[in-house]
Computed example of a mutant assay.
Amino acid sequence: MIIKPSAAIRQNYNEIADLCREAKEPIFLTKNGEGDLVVMDIDTFNRREKMLKLREELLVVEEARAMEEKGYSIDEVVNMMKKSVDGVGNGK
Rank of each mutant, 00 (worst) to 15 (best):
D43P: 00
K92V: 04
S84N: 12
I74L: 06
M67I: 02
D86G: 04
L54G: 11
A7W: 03
K24D: 06
N46M: 15
I3E: 14
I74C: 05
T30V: 05
I2E: 09
F28N: 11
K53T: 15
K83G: 06
D75R: 02
K83P: 00
E68P: 10
D86I: 02
R21H: 06
E57M: 11
L37C: 07
N32Y: 06
A17I: 05
E15P: 05
I16A: 02
F45G: 01
G35S: 08
A66E: 07
M40I: 01
L58P: 01
M67T: 03
V39N: 01
N32R: 13
E62D: 07
D86S: 03
V78Y: 05
V61K: 11
I9W: 02
E56W: 04
A8D: 13
K50E: 07
I42Q: 12
A7R: 12
Q11G: 09
E22F: 03
S6P: 01
L19F: 04
K31C: 07
L29K: 05
K50H: 13
G71T: 03
V60K: 14
M1S: 11
N46T: 05
E69M: 09
E22A: 04
K24P: 01
A23G: 04
N32L: 04
I9T: 01
G71A: 01
A8W: 09
K31M: 04
S6T: 13
I42C: 08
R65N: 08
L59E: 13
E25H: 08
I74P: 00
E57I: 15
T44P: 00
K70Q: 14
N46F: 13
S73M: 10
F45K: 11
P5V: 02
L52A: 12
N32C: 05
V61Q: 10
M67K: 15
I42D: 12
F45H: 14
A23V: 04
R55N: 08
E15M: 10
V38A: 13
K53I: 14
T30Q: 02
C20S: 05
P26R: 05
E63Q: 11
I42V: 15
V85G: 06
K82M: 07
L37N: 07
T30W: 00
T44G: 04
K70R: 14
E15H: 03
N90H: 09
R65A: 09
K83N: 12
C20D: 02
E22G: 02
Y72I: 07
M67Q: 11
F28M: 14
Y72M: 13
V78I: 15
R10S: 12
